[in-house]
Computed example of a mutant assay.
Amino acid sequence: MSRLLLLFSLAVFISCDSESGGKAYHDDYKTAFDTILDNYDLSGSVLIYDPQQQTYYSNDFEWSKRDFLPASTFKIPNAIIALETGIMKSDTSIIKWDGKKRDFESWEKDLTLRDAFQASCVPCFQEIARKIGTASMKTYLNKFHYNDMDVTTENIDSFWLKGKSHISSFEQIDFLERFLTKKLPILNTTRESMLKIFKIEENQTYKLSGKTGWSYNETNNNGWFVGFLEKDHKKYYFSLNAIPKDANKMEKFADGRKQAIYDALRAMKLI
């Protein structure tokens, strides 16, 4: 390599590292992540952040910077705000079913906050959002630096499902990291309840917590799976955002969002 090319490459590296706040971007697993997404007929990005090494891994960093509707991943801040305002007292607080027909039978019963979160009960969290109200919702989202939510009185129970609200994979991970490292201005009781609400799987090796999301905004289905892995006293954060390769072939879409992350973590030998 010529001296000029070496100096140019070093300058680019330093510039990128500086812009990312000292964090590095690696595409070591690009081929593996692309293959995993292909296996589930998905196009999109897998973004995994290792805070111990201050390193992001992805197959598509540009996609990870793009904004999309948060969909049901917004149940994370929605639940936090419900706990902070006292609308919900804990993870076991009951959300009563109003007896009306719902999209899924699993939603047609009284649910604890944790069960509603895990079942992704849309009507449950719409009710919570209405109880929080527009003013308090805006106040807490601003307090949490959970930006770019278009909240109005008219859309208080749907702004995360349709419309102009948006978030990127990098922003999802930033919020999750601030939550898990106690940098969100919330009560310890809220954090402890949320850790119970979040948890998907725990075994002798690791604990995995997260939330899926699925939106359809006029043109495309868009899917999320965001969360964090705790293993050997270390933490890793992940965010998948993807669309189906073929809108007529949706068979793998729902499960594929979660399974792709599990496969990516296996590829990195984290689980």
Rank of each mutant, 00 (worst) to 15 (best):
L6A: 11
L7D: 04
L7P: 03
L10S: 15
A11N: 10
I14S: 14
I14N: 10
I14A: 13
C16Y: 11
E19I: 15
E19R: 13
K23R: 15
K23Q: 02
K23C: 05
Y25K: 14
Y29R: 03
K30G: 08
T35A: 12
Y40K: 03
D41A: 08
G44K: 02
G44T: 04
V46L: 08
L47Q: 01
D50L: 06
D50F: 10
P51R: 05
P51Q: 04
Q53Y: 09
N59T: 05
N59P: 10
K65D: 11
R66F: 02
R66Y: 07
D67I: 14
D67S: 15
L69Q: 01
L69V: 05
A71L: 13
T73P: 02
F74G: 02
F74Q: 02
P77M: 04
A79I: 00
I81S: 10
A82Q: 09
E84C: 03
I87W: 04
K89G: 12
S90C: 09
D91R: 03
T92A: 15
G99Q: 02
R102L: 11
E105G: 07
W107C: 07
E108S: 13
E108T: 09
E108V: 05
E108Y: 09
D110A: 14
T112P: 02
T112Q: 01
T112V: 00
D115P: 08
A116D: 01
A116C: 02
F117P: 06
A119Y: 12
A119N: 14
V122C: 06
A129F: 04
R130D: 07
R130P: 03
G133F: 08
T134V: 11
T134C: 10
A135S: 13
M137F: 00
M137V: 01
K138F: 10
Y140V: 01
H145A: 14
H145F: 14
Y146P: 03
Y146W: 13
M149Q: 14
S158D: 14
F159I: 00
F159C: 03
K164R: 13
I167V: 10
D174A: 15
D174N: 15
F175D: 01
R178H: 04
L180R: 15
T181I: 09
L184A: 03
L184R: 06
P185G: 09
I186K: 04
I186D: 08
T189G: 04
T190P: 08
R191A: 14
K196D: 06
I197W: 01
I197N: 00
E202I: 05
E202F: 02
Q204E: 15
Y206I: 01
K207S: 15
K207R: 14
S209H: 07
S209N: 11
S209F: 05
G210I: 01
G210Y: 02
K211H: 02
G213H: 06
W214K: 09
S215P: 05
E218P: 11
T219F: 11
N221S: 13
W224P: 00
W224V: 06
V226W: 02
V226K: 04
L229M: 00
E230H: 07
E230N: 09
K231G: 00
K234Q: 15
K234V: 10
F238V: 05
S239R: 06
L240M: 08
N241H: 11
P244G: 08
K245S: 08
N248F: 10
N248I: 10
K252T: 12
F253E: 06
D255N: 13
Q259W: 12
Q259C: 09
Q259T: 11
A260N: 04
L265S: 00
R266L: 13
R266Q: 12
I271H: 15
